[in-house]
């Protein structure tokens, strides 16, 4: 019986070898398909991050110089520039991401209602995001001129106009000084110039947040809203206890994307202040650019960039853990 079976169906090992041969043939084809992408991405994104670390170990000015070990890192961590730039970046991130998301959340709630002209409003809100940030920054720079429209508005109200993009003093200092409150040096906040750039960035990025929030809202089942209304929930209760918790994954996604994006911000700062006044808008990305391509300190700039890479990676992981846990607590 066993003999006949094996003589009748001897093909089992044959099938598997055919299949295996097919698998390997597919593998070869797949790698041929992937080759262009892999070469390009590996060269300019994967190899280059390792190369960045290598460069950062040298006194590399335009051409490779002496091996320094971790000296570049020591210099960076000891210098005030990096810490100041990091603080500036953090303030910029805070002043851009949170207001932009808060605005977009409420705009999306209004837009998710069955109102006429939804696509018109959505387009209007989204337009800044597709325009060139260089051109947009040029416009905002003229709006914030000391003899520009905002200054005129302030004068019209009867308040002395601030210096906007030329103001290196901290925003909290400027707000609280008239009240006679004196702040310690570390509590003055970002410069008004940085806040102006943040305002431009909020304007620029809120459209993305609105669109993603709206997409998230369409995935919430309509029945939940009907049930809540039947139970007599008020508008605010529906937002607080239904929309907000159910949108938490979307919110988290936008948060991660925006924080990473805010660390990369360059164009608007380069155009609006180029790091000034008094260096108060020099974020880490601007510092890297200046060190590398203005002063030619490629090794030093690489070390800066590598540190930033570590910080962004750490931040993302922390965000994943913290927000992931709170999302689970709420849904569980």
């Amino acid at each position: 019986m066993a003999l006949t079976a094996s003589s009748l169906f001897p093909s089992r090992p044959v099938v598997s070898s055919v299949r295996r041969r097919k698998y390997w043939r597919t593998t070869v084809l797949a790698y041929a398909f992937l080759l262009p992408s892999i070469i390009l991405i590996a060269t300019f994104h994967l190899f280059s991050i390792a190369f960045a670390f290598y460069i950062s170990l040298f006194n590399w000015k335009v051409i490779k110089g002496a091996f320094l070990g971790f000296t570049n890192y020591q210099v960076i961590l000891g210098s005030g520039d990096f810490r100041a730039a990091l603080a500036t970046t953090a303030w910029y991130s805070l002043f851009t991401v949170i207001p932009s998301m808060a605005f977009a959340f409420f705009a999306a709630i209004l837009l998710s209602r069955p109102i006429k002209g939804l696509s018109f409003y959505r387009t209007l809100f989204f337009v800044p995001y597709v325009t060139s940030s260089v051109a947009a920054a040029a416009v905002w720079r003229t709006l914030f001129r000391t003899d520009g429209i905002f200054s005129s508005l302030w004068k019209w109200i009867g308040v002395p106009s601030p210096q906007w993009l030329n103001e290196p003093r901290g925003i909290f200092l400027l707000l609280l000084q008239p009240l006679g409150i004196h702040l310690p040096h570390w509590a003055v906040g970002p410069s008004l110039a940085m806040v102006c750039i943040a305002i431009m960035s909020i304007w620029y990025s809120q459209g993305f947040d609105v669109v993603v929030f709206l997409a998230g809202m369409t995935s919430i089942p309509k029945e939940l809203y009907e049930a809540a209304r039947l139970d007599g929930a008020s508008e605010w209760q529906v937002i607080r206890f239904l929309t907000w918790p159910l949108l938490l994954p979307t919110t988290f996604f936008i948060l991660v994307i925006s924080v990473i994006g805010s660390f990369k911000a360059f164009n608007q700062i380069y155009i609006m202040t180029n790091g000034g006044p008094a260096g108060t808008t020099t974020t880490v990305s601007l510092l890297v650019y200046n060190e590398a391509f203005r002063y030619g300190h490629l090794g030093y700039a690489s070390a800066l960039a590598f540190l930033l890479f570590g910080i962004i990676l750490g931040l993302t992981l922390v965000q994943f853990r913290v927000v992931g846990r709170s999302a689970r607590t709420i849904s569980g």
Partner: peptide, 11 residues
């Protein structure tokens, strides 16, 4: 995950 500043110099 790699920010563009990190690859600016090597690239």
């Amino acid at each position: 995950m790699v920010p563009f500043e990190a690859t600016l110099v090597p690239d």
